[in-house]
Write a protein that binds this DNA or RNA. Sequence first.
DNA 1: AACCGTTGCATGATATAACACATATCAGTA
DNA 2: TACTGATATGTGTTATATCATGCAACGGTT
Lengths: 248, 248
Amino acid sequence: MRRAIQGEAQPIEAGSAAERQPPQRALTARLRPVNRPETLGDQAYRSLRTALRRGALSPGERLTTREIAATLGVSLTPAREALNRLVAERVLEQGPDRTVIVPILTRDRYEELCVIRLNLEGLAAEIGCTKMTAAQLARMEALYTAHGEAYRRRATKDALRLNEDFHFMIYGAAGMPSLLQILETLWLQVGPSMNLLFPVSYDAGWKGGRHHAAMLEAIRRRDPKALVRAVQRDLEDGRAVLKRLLPE
Amino acid sequence: MRRAIQGEAQPIEAGSAAERQPPQRALTARLRPVNRPETLGDQAYRSLRTALRRGALSPGERLTTREIAATLGVSLTPAREALNRLVAERVLEQGPDRTVIVPILTRDRYEELCVIRLNLEGLAAEIGCTKMTAAQLARMEALYTAHGEAYRRRATKDALRLNEDFHFMIYGAAGMPSLLQILETLWLQVGPSMNLLFPVSYDAGWKGGRHHAAMLEAIRRRDPKALVRAVQRDLEDGRAVLKRLLPE
DNA sequence: AACCGTTGCATGATATAACACATATCAGTA
DNA sequence: TACTGATATGTGTTATATCATGCAACGGTT
């Protein structure tokens, strides 16, 4: 056996049992750290978050701690933690007498969010353009075709999801975690109403596809300014359509 | 008595007991809503927040739920809620095995925050410039002199506080609550290290006063572009000084 | 019929208990 | 002396109990 032979090849002064073992890489190279499960609170948070992104929760809907807890099969504590976190991010809202509700996006609020997004998404795009790898670009092209397909199939939920992935592939490439987190919560704040209104805005004629093509082209040419313009135009188009549909 | 005389002056057809009373304004105009105390969780949150702003908590310090709870005289639940909220805002940080620590601001992280702030504070200043009222401007001028005085007195904590108030008077005038909240958490993220390093950066010569004067002048002239420039110069000056002092 | 107070239920807020895990302390052994 | 293993302590996480509050249904009064 190789092991025994290797062992005998060791220097003679090795006397202890440990040193008779064949030489091996450090333990950390052979053992993977255990998979430490995330807390129930984090799971509840992510669960609510994806529900929000999918439009499973409608604006104005009231969320109670106990119902969330019962639905997710956990106690009040993790459910409450998740709700508090979402409220802190302004993704959910404190209603009267401390109830938590899915916010109803007003025109003013949407306008404010858009102004912030125009700046921040432009910033992220400008930086992301220079740092994007070839692999990321390839992934974006795949997302582009998938998005166009879902769009034509009128699979609005899929299209929304793919649109989000497409955008965040750019923003993520910037390598700015704080900025990315801000952008995620901003998107999440418009998400629920977006899901509700998208079928309408779809019929109103959305030119997202054209802008996405321009974005890809700008990235291929490594032209940050052009990318910023395309990203902002995309956002402004959506804004023009959605603004008329929002209340107040 | 005036009331009785007023009462007798009422039209005669008033017969019921209620109608014999003198005319009065609606109840809501005479009764203030009860002072509904904020929850212990919110109080704990604000308490930690002001401690952070004052530099009472040092970067790297470890915060335990039980110690916070004991210090504030509440149970674990509100203390935990406050910590979670601050972690969600990235004002505090998750250390190894879910401990909460005051983040140590690295150079890269500070750089990222500055880039975001240059954009967002510029945006807030541009809008705030056009919306600022005369009363707000007067308040800013008072803050300006108070800040300069604290600066000369080398009362660094006071100077920092007044500097913050001065800036946020502009940003608040923009009337964009979401943007304001983002800016507040961004400032809070640099706050602890700022408090630690400011005495040093003070000696290194800070030209904040000049920029503040330029800001005031720009507001008086209602010149948004000039205000944006002044705000960004101010931030860039601070960045140049602080960047060298940060680790990594 | 309209109004109003009462009662019971659901809910959020808080405290507390129970549990798993990590670190520190310390004694025992090579 | 250096290292190993056990124990104690502290901590985060989660569940549960308790309390005050808001709301809705109900029934009595005018």
